[in-house]
Design a protein around this nucleic acid. Structure first.
Lengths: 188, 188
DNA sequence: GAGCGTCTTGGACAGTTGCCCAAGACGTTA
DNA sequence: TAACGTCTTGGGCAACTGTCCAAGACGCTC
């Protein structure tokens, strides 16, 4: 019953999602158009509405999928780090990987904003972020940090904020931030 | 030579700017249209292009003006606070005033993103944020905080990040954050 | 009153958008 | 071979966009 076609269709769907991810960052959520995505994916314009009910649906699937992958990967790497200092270093390295103008940074920020206007997206994203914060708090607690819950909240927020600020001033000295952050985590 | 008309025109210009501010937050930077702004300002659609060269020009003027006012006001209030604890309290109070879904939060986030794509806006915004960070670092230094420069960077980023995160989870416990933040600022 | 400068009006224009759909392509099944 | 399921094509449509502009309104000067 056309099994090969189904497989090919699934590949097309995936290509649309992969094409949408950088476009969200480059052009902005509202500026991504069906024709834009289709062209970058190398397919006819009509394909988008065959695989997705609407452009918004495509953007939600693309942004949530990408964000989930990023957070999962990062949480996994953190779990492998034994000490607070090594973990903080990993955290800052992650921030320095994004200059606030790269597609990943922009996609995350665009997704936050879109979430404020699309309830379904907000719910999915909130769950993702809450999971990540829980994981971070658990890691902090295991490594003997003070106030792991609150510290995880500040850390998570600081990472997102730093990525935003780095877009305005790429010369921000991230290495210097390890000391105050470390200071926040130590017990009295 | 039509002085009354000039005054009235200036008032119209201001009304356009005031109408644009909440619209940027509500609809998103790219989704703000000339007709939308004109309608909310209570003027004919054509007026926008009489007072501004383009929609983008209007949005830049509106967002930069609003952001400058907000940062100035906050910096002034902070300067009046004598101690670290009182200042931190004021900082968290400012965050709690924004739930991440209010027009002000959204406008700031939208402006950050638009700045990544509009060089002129990025330059203006970068200057605003750098000024604010300098002021914050100065206040921290005066109040005997450790590592004032780096701490100001983390604090500024954390504020923006927290506002973003509060949009996803309004129940975030901000009061609990005072302790780790205070801990970050204390000298060894 | 006439003339002038400034601002305002409402519609025109070409371009772009999301979404839809008839027609066709292609492997699979009978 | 013929029929079928799935995916793909390319163009059509109404709605909306930024921008422009001729015409008019209003207060002011002479």
């Amino acid at each position: 019953m056309g099994e090969a076609a189904a497989i090919r269709g699934e590949a097309t769907r995936r290509r649309l999602l992969e094409a949408a991810v950088p476009l969200i960052g480059e052009a902005g959520w509202h500026a991504v158009t069906t024709r834009m995505v289709a062209q970058r994916a190398g397919v006819a314009p009509g394909v988008v509405h065959y695989h997705f009910a609407s452009v918004t649906d495509l953007l939600i699937a693309a942004s949530v999928g990408f964000t989930r992958g990023m957070l999962d990967r990062f949480a996994r790497e953190l779990a492998e780090r034994p000490g607070l200092d090594a973990g903080l270093g990993r955290l800052l390295a992650e921030v320095s990987r994004h200059d606030g103008a790269d597609p990943a940074s922009l996609l995350v920020a665009e997704t936050y904003l879109a979430a404020s206007r699309i309830p379904r997206l907000r719910d999915e994203l909130a769950e993702l972020v809450a999971d990540f914060r829980r994981g971070l708090a658990g890691w902090l607690a295991e490594n003997g940090a003070a106030d792991p819950e609150a510290a995880a909240t500040v850390l998570g927020a600081a990472v997102d904020g730093l990525i935003l600020h780095r877009g305005l001033d790429p010369r921000l000295d991230l290495a210097a931030l390890a000391r105050p952050l470390r200071s926040m985590l130590r017990k009295e």
